[in-house]
């Protein structure tokens, strides 16, 4: 097993992603993520001067659409999918966090 990532770090990342992991999962994912990082380290060890970093696996860029309005969804239909609605808006639980 590689030492490239600790179970504490994996637990931290899981918490950020709102994932609840069992102790067994935590250990398994720590090992798997360690392997991924090991692979990245292998690539990092190569001489990559002059190789442009890949931004996307498809060899395409600048795929854009014209700035033309198309119809939006029907509001009643949209809101009918929400668990709670008030005043034409989505009603969400009290937000804990930064005020906007």
């Amino acid at each position: 097993m590689s030492n490239r990532i600790s179970t504490d770090e994996v637990a931290h990342v899981a918490r950020l992603a709102r994932l609840q992991l069992t102790q067994g999962e935590l250990e398994r994912f720590t090992e798997q993520l360690g392997d991924v990082l090991e692979h990245a380290a292998d690539i990092e060890a190569l001489d990559l001067d002059g190789v442009t970093p890949m931004a996307h696996p498809l060899p395409l860029a600048n795929v854009a659409r014209p700035d033309t309005v198309r119809p939006s969804l029907d509001r009643d239909e949209v809101l009918s999918q929400a668990p709670a609605v008030e005043d034409g808006r989505f009603k969400v639980p009290k937000i804990l966090g930064e005020e906007l």
Binding site: E86, D87, G88, R89, F90, K91, V92, P93, K94, I95, G97, E98, E99, L100
Partner: peptide, 17 residues
């Protein structure tokens, strides 16, 4: 933010547009 003093900390719930 709805309820409380209108600030997030005291709000009962929020509405999103």
């Amino acid at each position: 933010h709805v309820g409380g003093d209108g600030r997030i900390s005291g709000a009962d719930y929020s509405l999103v547009d």
